[in-house]
Amino acid sequence: MSSEATVAVYEVRSDGEIAKARLAADGIVARLSVDDEGGLNPGFFSRYGVRLVVRPEDLDDAYESLGIEQVRVPSEVADAMFKHAGWAFPDEGCGLVAVDDDGGPVLTICLTNADHAPDRFTITPDEQFGAIRHAESRDLTIGGVFHSHPRSEAYPSAVDIGGGGDPAWVHFIVGPVAGPRPLLRAFRLVDGDVTELKVTVGQ
């Protein structure tokens, strides 16, 4: 595939093969991308993961086929993420996302990337606490974090996966900011596992 989009990452190749077979049964062409040094170092699987990739135009169908969770993002919430990503370029932009009682995103709180770097971000405790207070003043809670990838795919990097954070939060990524059509994607990151959510933008 000349252009690919990552659907999911698995620690064990057999799990990826099962998902690939499920997609094939639904007529979706997919492949596994594995950085295992040509099979000479299978131990790489658990560290870097086995990526299930499809053509970008098949991504939505792949989500549906695999039963991937969906998250609805209001247009103004998504727009704020895209604008902040553009403002922060060429560094990563970042912030927190406030949610309502149902867990739906309702407010983007743009913050400062203390690292001022293109491949990682840090939110200082002071800014995080300020965002929490701001959300609480509107009877909201923090339920997500967002950041941008200036030049890479909107998919968690090894730094993102190992970065910790509240496992209950949804992780939103905008990228590639330098590309003609940056995407907004969402993930759950729990103990090194990456689970993508299907993002629907609108009211």
Rank of each mutant, 00 (worst) to 15 (best):
T108A: 14
P56N: 07
N41A: 15
D102S: 13
K83D: 15
G49Y: 02
G175K: 01
R185I: 05
D191F: 04
G38L: 04
A62M: 08
P156T: 05
E64I: 15
V54S: 00
G95Q: 01
R55D: 14
T108D: 06
L66G: 11
L111M: 07
L96Y: 06
I132R: 11
L96G: 00
I18L: 14
G192M: 10
D102C: 12
V97A: 02
G95I: 02
G163I: 03
V159D: 08
G103A: 10
S14Q: 15
R13I: 08
S137G: 15
G104K: 15
N41P: 00
V7C: 07
V159G: 06
E69I: 06
D35E: 15
T200K: 08
S33Q: 07
L183R: 11
G16D: 07
K198H: 11
R138A: 14
D119S: 10
L52E: 03
R22L: 15
L189F: 07
G49Q: 07
R31I: 05
E64K: 14
L40F: 11
D61T: 09
A8H: 04
G164K: 05
F89Q: 00
E153G: 00
S14L: 10
P167N: 07
E136R: 12
N41E: 10
A85H: 02
A114H: 05
M1T: 10
S157E: 03
E136H: 09
P180L: 09
D36N: 14
I18F: 12
G164L: 03
E76N: 14
L183V: 07
L189C: 09
D61W: 13
A24S: 14
D100L: 01
Q70D: 15
L197H: 14
A168T: 09
F45D: 15
P180W: 09
V7P: 06
N41D: 13
W87T: 13
H149Y: 04
D26G: 15
R47T: 14
R151E: 09
A62L: 06
A25F: 09
C94E: 01
V174D: 00
G38P: 05
N113M: 04
F129M: 13
D102K: 10
W169E: 10
V159E: 12
E37F: 15
R181P: 03
R72C: 08
S75F: 05
A78H: 05
A80V: 02
Q203M: 14
E92T: 04
E4L: 11
D166F: 06
A131L: 05
A62C: 06
W87N: 13
S2T: 09
D166A: 04
A78T: 11
A85P: 03
W169I: 05
T124D: 03
Y48C: 07
S148P: 05
A19P: 13
E64H: 09
R55I: 00
R31G: 10
Y48L: 12
N113R: 04
D101Y: 11
V201K: 03
S3G: 01
